[in-house]
Design a protein around this nucleic acid. Structure first.
Lengths: 215, 215, 215, 215
DNA sequence: GATGAATGAGTATTCATTCAT
DNA sequence: AATGAATGAATACTCATTCAT
């Protein structure tokens, strides 16, 4: 009951005033928040990068905090959509679907819109606990659901071992999650920088075959 | 009359303990920097948590930045030591060594000394590039060397498949790395919070056997 | 009801007058720097005297130091102009020209623009050596040139003894220089305070006739 | 009546606690106050130059301000003594006495004890008005008395023109006063720096003969 | 007496926010 | 709507002063 309603329209809590217009503002804000963190980002720099004046920000967002929330909301949305699409192509093998996910992950991560929200959330969630809750409940929950379905389906189809999907979930997704964070932080300083293509191939490979020599 | 009272006990505004101070300061600083990030941490709070006054910080560290550097250097040291110790017990199987590492990882991550430096570095490395370089070159390099030896040894001993250690390195270590970051950030908001014990067991398991059903 | 009242007149916390600001700021700064010295002058007081808030200063000057430099540069300019003008009226006798200079000196010294820079420079030149060099090279050099011309011209015209102009320069100008400094410092405490008019007349008189009884 | 008493013992107002002992402290303080001014001088630097610790200063002086007062008092004393001595040798010509004074002035000015008090007073008198009053009333008054006697004596002896001593006083002494200030301030930056020997000879010369050509 | 670690009030500077234009 | 000058609360840092040793 509630769920149906909830999906139809969720208005409050993340107020939706002027969602679409200042896309450039939100975009600029996201980039800078990801790069520097919330406190170290000056609204003046956001304004400059968006090509407007400082005051203009306040025509659309009531405060710096609200701007960050809007930026995060915007960046999070694409992530919420891909999973379902993949699931439709259910005729594919689990391994192929994993490859698909990995490829999308990579592409998505380098697309500007969602660049580094995860790094931002990691950095700021303790200063803005509602953001932490929002992300865990709204975004990760859906991710969890998707991955659980994927794992269960793989087991059912006899493509995966008979593992406990709940327990494996976190470990299985960890390399993808870390890559997302890493590419916007320490990954920028690694000398032989990680090649995401190789990383993701290796990931799928390892996931399926493990490291152990089959007895 | 008044005098007598006044003389009896004054609460001793401070005491002299020059040797212990730097450690306490750095400890308090590390905790707050990890929790709030560099910019959002006020030196006054650091001082308060360390039980001293604002000015005292400057007796030991020239600036907020220097304090953070010191905190990071200090927190990083223990990390640099464990790996070698494990390597000594070379009679063990690769799987046992992995378990050992995982167990230590967990313990170490909750020990105060190194709490969340990695989260801190992820958050701040773009604002303090030299910290990024420092960590990648000093700390991660050693970690890489250790893991490469471990993988190669496993292959030589016939315990691991004939994989490319260089390529697998990042993926293999990713779940451990992520856990470290996660426990100090979004992990605090996950509703069924991750049980590190289960996580690490699953990790070792997955690493060795993979998910795929052996043909 | 309340609203009506509220709308009627709000005292307009500030108004926009970007062109006038720097001048007012520099003026206020100069007055206070001369009065109290650089270190003892609080920017808040400067702001208050200029009728703006603390932050406004930083819209025009990057730092307290830069503000002082600007103040000094501004105050120094008028000084650099008068000398040449006097020199034009070259038909006058040396004694008349001296009177003219003395009169201008007095007037100039009480005009707001140049109030007490010399006292400020005396006080601060050792803390800001470049200011010392700047003043000696830019301002005093021109002053020297002017006085040398004046003395040489006087000798040529047979109005002055055959003195060594280079040697006399410093001594001849000393009473004027001192007066400038004095009026902004100890002169304020002298009980029978110096009457600049009398002082300058006496100066010209002494300069020409000396104290000695002509043999 | 009052005067007699006043000369015998003047105890309060310039408290005399521990006048003699920490001569090095006062000496160091004087040097630094003259060089940097009151506000810009850190007690730590004073302590260091005197070879003691910061806390030691407070064993002898209750505050930074009191230290400066003590330093000024100390530096002023020698000045108060010379004049009378000169006056004793009353058989000399006015010109010779002037030369004596000038020579002493120069020497005194480079002696450490009195180095630059005048510059210090010029710089700080408006922040410490009692210092301004003290100097004007105690020190300058005596100086004035001495110079007045000298001028009157010269006139009486027929060595000087029949000038108004009161009016000439300030102008006559100005070059000496300025030299004292100058040598501790802008004089340090003048490119062909003033040679005090030449300056003082020229001074005496100018004083007696003036610049004007005798008709 | 002497020390220097510790204190905390004070100040320069930054930056989110407001508002006259 | 948009601007950017102006504001002032917030914070890093300094330094006179205190006091346990």
């Amino acid at each position: 009951m509630h769920m149906t309603v909830a999906i139809e329209k969720r208005p409050a809590r993340w107020s939706r005033r002027s969602e679409a217009r200042p896309g450039e503002l939100v975009q600029a804000a996201l980039e800078l928040f990801v790069e520097r963190g919330y406190a170290a980002t000056r609204l003046e720099d956001v304004a400059q990068r968006a090509g407007v004046s400082k005051g203009t920000i306040y025509l659309y967002y009531g405060s710096k905090e609200e701007l960050m929330r809007a930026a995060i909301r915007l960046a999070v949305q694409p992530k919420l959509q891909f999973a379902e699409e993949v699931m439709e192509r259910s005729e594919r093998s689990t391994r192929d679907m994993l490859r698909l996910i990995a490829a999308n992950w990579m592409e998505d991560n380098s697309r500007s819109s969602s660049r580094g929200i995860l790094k931002l959330l990691v950095s700021e969630c303790r200063n803005f606990p509602e953001l932490g809750h929002f992300y865990c409940e709204e975004v990760m929950q859906r991710g969890r659901a998707f991955w659980l379905r994927l794992l269960r389906r793989g087991i059912e189809r006899g493509e995966l071992r008979d593992i406990d999907p709940e327990a494996y979930l976190a470990v299985v997704t960890a390399p993808l999650t870390l890559l997302t964070i890493w590419q916007h932080s320490l990954g920028l300083f690694e000398k032989p920088s990680i090649d995401p293509r190789v990383y993701l191939e290796t990931y799928v490979d390892m996931l399926f075959q493990g490291l152990g020599k089959p007895a």
